[in-house]
Simulated scan of single mutants.
Amino acid sequence: MRVGSGLQRAQSFMVLATGLYRVSHLVVGILAVAQHQRDSVLSWLGLTAAVASSLSVFGVARSRGWFGARPPLVDLVLVGCVLPFVVYAGGADRPSDIGWSMLLGGSASAVCAVALRRGAAVAGAVTALVVTHIAGYAMAGAEIAVIAAHLNALVSSAVLARVFWWYLRRQGRLLDAATEQAVAAEAARARYAERMAHHRALHDTVLATLTAIASGRADAGTAAVRERCGREAAYLRRLVQQQAEDDGIAPGTAAAVEHAVRSVESLGLRVTAQYGAPAEIPAHAAAALGSAVTEALNNVLRHAGTGRAYVTVTGSAGGVVVTVVDRGSGFDPLTVDKGMGLRSSIGERMREAGGAAEVDSAPGEGTCVALRWPA
């Protein structure tokens, strides 16, 4: 389940709602014991146990995002079924004195109604509470009307909590489905836009070159035409490779890196690019990667003393790793001026986007620039 999904929001709301419901009952219990049973040790112990059980149930729910399987059942037994008898044994032998402990059964039934998956389990929990509270009120000599009103509130708490949880869960799943459809549609539009960009590029480069050669306007034997054909052949190989990956690479990442490669190839640098299948990343991160790759390739062109570079795009845990490698002259990273592109333009750009850049080089051994998102 994705963080921030509709289903998770529904769960967070139910944890909050049932938690506030329990808090309201605990406040009543604290006031009742403080005013009328301050001398009853068992009442204070029972109230302390109820608070501890509440912290356990809702603390687990808060940390995990939902109720655990065991804490609600322990709360049901301790707060819902045992607490009334403990309070009665401490001297609360009138309906008005034992009422606060009975009230906590309502929030216990609400928690069970949303935490337990099976309807039979919820029915069993509510039945246990009903039997316990009938017995407790009977011991305290409560009238039938008081018992009936309390049982109605007890059962209503479970029913309403169950209905609310069903509705919110359904709405959360519908929201998640709609979000997934929107993301898929956006990805499809991005892929279509990328294909159209490739079609235009093919028209302006490969097709134009072939047409010029076929019509005799360009001599295929000249060095300039051969160099152009080599660059365009490399572009075609990358395009075929991307299609073979069944669109597994994130469109934004592919477009950004490909734009960087082609922009530097137009200046005479030959680039061999390999594309893997990383996860989709945000647009700002893809843009930062593309700019960093452009700067890294420009550095190869300006400083490496070689006419070839290698770019590899792979996936990491929920992100992307792009490496730019050359076999040129290399350098000592410790002696490089901090104002140069490797440290400022590349490193700062990646950090601002939430990524990282690492440079590995040595004199005579070439250079490897690794770009990661996220860091």
Rank of each mutant, 00 (worst) to 15 (best):
11 Q>M: 08
17 A>G: 03
18 T>N: 11
22 R>D: 03
26 L>F: 03
27 V>W: 07
40 S>L: 06
58 F>W: 12
60 V>P: 01
68 G>Y: 05
77 V>F: 10
87 V>K: 03
88 Y>N: 02
90 G>D: 04
97 D>E: 12
98 I>S: 07
98 I>W: 02
99 G>P: 00
106 G>T: 15
113 A>M: 09
119 G>R: 11
122 V>N: 08
124 G>S: 13
130 V>R: 09
132 T>G: 08
136 G>N: 07
140 A>R: 09
142 A>V: 04
143 E>V: 05
145 A>E: 15
154 L>E: 03
157 S>Q: 12
160 L>S: 12
173 R>N: 07
174 L>C: 05
179 T>M: 09
179 T>C: 04
183 V>W: 06
193 A>E: 10
197 A>V: 01
201 A>F: 06
213 I>S: 03
215 S>A: 15
220 A>G: 05
222 T>P: 02
234 A>D: 13
235 Y>E: 13
236 L>Y: 11
238 R>E: 15
238 R>S: 15
247 D>T: 10
248 G>L: 06
249 I>E: 13
250 A>Q: 06
261 V>P: 00
263 S>T: 14
263 S>N: 09
263 S>P: 00
266 S>G: 12
267 L>D: 12
270 R>M: 07
287 A>K: 11
287 A>Q: 11
293 V>N: 01
298 N>E: 09
304 A>F: 05
309 A>I: 00
310 Y>I: 04
314 T>V: 14
314 T>P: 00
317 A>V: 12
322 V>H: 09
324 V>N: 04
325 V>I: 08
329 S>E: 11
331 F>I: 06
338 K>R: 15
341 G>M: 13
342 L>T: 09
351 R>H: 13
351 R>E: 14
358 E>P: 00
358 E>S: 14
360 D>N: 12
365 E>D: 08
366 G>W: 05
369 V>K: 09
